[in-house]
């Protein structure tokens, strides 16, 4: 499972660079609403990763039962 999810590291890294790293580099961390934005971004990423994991597990189970 871990090997099959490794590909997600690239889109996660690219997304976090754009939505968190560069804004922090530009001084956005000092903004009052930045923590809220960062929390939403991380929660959204976690939700999508969870959907991918659940979907992958279901596909794997279906394949395993067909064997």
């Amino acid at each position: 499972m871990r090997d099959r999810l490794r590909w997600l590291l690239v889109p996660i890294a690219a997304y976090l660079v754009i939505t968190l790293v560069l804004p922090i580099a530009n001084g956005a961390a000092a903004r009052a609403d930045f923590v809220r934005h960062a929390t939403r971004v991380l929660a959204g990423c976690a939700a999508v990763v969870a959907i991918v994991v659940i979907g992958g597990t279901i596909v794997e189970l279906v394949r395993w039962r067909k064997r």
């Binding site: 590909w7 997600l8 889109p11 997304y15 939403r40 929660a43 959204g44 990423c45 939700a47 999508v48």
Partner: peptide, 21 residues
């Protein structure tokens, strides 16, 4: 609206990357 944007954008990014791979 904000949460929807994050989920659709990040989900779309993962889907795009998966298809490209």
């Amino acid at each position: 609206h904000s949460i929807e944007g994050i989920v659709v954008y990040f989900g779309g990014l993962c889907a795009l990357y998966w298809v490209a791979r």
